[in-house]
Design a protein around this nucleic acid. Structure first.
Length: 185
DNA sequence: TAGGCGATGACCT
DNA sequence: GGTCATCGCCTAC
């Protein structure tokens, strides 16, 4: 369990490249997989099968019909853990991201929230299963040289097991989305 | 093949 | 800060 959280934390401060836009990951949320009721991998289906595969691949899903969310499969394979990328700070391709978002209020909010982040990066369901350690359409940059200060708290938006403190963010970063507990929690 | 559902976002007060 | 619109996909008949 703890290694899942550790891997989620290690993603903070790391670069995430997506179709011409680069952002620095500022907020993530860990999902334990097989023993985590809130995880999409909790019920094993053809779709969630990707999380039972090799680590460092992309798992994307559509929510509420219109939003796309991006996850990093972290493994190990028998656990099917994944990390939801919730927010980031765009460092390259701001113009392109703004174009994709349409009417974005501020630069700092371009990739605030999982749906907005995926939209800024131009992610679609076609990116499902993309290898994240291989430079291409979507991939991860090298780990940060300097590890940022990290805060932890309960997960957002999940209807089950919301009390697990598996949400991590870079302390004080303004791109981190505001906390909101699920109405069903 | 039909229905339920969701790891949200935007907008309004 | 609270409320509500939203719809394509997955799962279970």
């Amino acid at each position: 369990m703890d290694d899942v959280a550790a891997r989620a934390r290690s993603l903070l401060g790391r670069m995430f490249h997506g179709h011409g836009v680069t952002l620095l990951i500022t907020e993530v949320e860990a999902y334990g997989g097989v023993d985590d009721p809130a995880s999409h991998a909790f019920t094993r289906t053809p779709r969630s099968e990707i999380m039972y595969g090799d680590p460092w691949h992309l798992y994307v899903y559509r929510s509420y019909g219109m939003h796309v969310c991006a996850n990093v499969v972290t493994g190990p394979t028998d656990r099917a853990a994944a990390v939801l990328i919730r927010a980031g700070k765009i460092v390259e391709g701001v113009e392109l991201a703004r174009e994709r978002r349409g009417t974005a209020p501020k630069d700092v909010a371009l990739a605030r929230g999982p749906g907005n982040l995926a939209k800024s990066l131009g992610l679609t369901l076609a990116d499902l299963g993309a290898p994240l350690l291989v430079p291409g359409g979507v991939f991860l940059g090298a780990p940060p040289v300097e590890v940022p200060a990290v805060s932890a708290g309960p997960r957002v938006g999940v209807s089950r097991a919301a009390d697990v403190a598996w949400r991590f963010w870079i302390t004080g970063d303004r791109t981190v989305s505001a906390y909101r507990r699920s109405p069903r929690a």
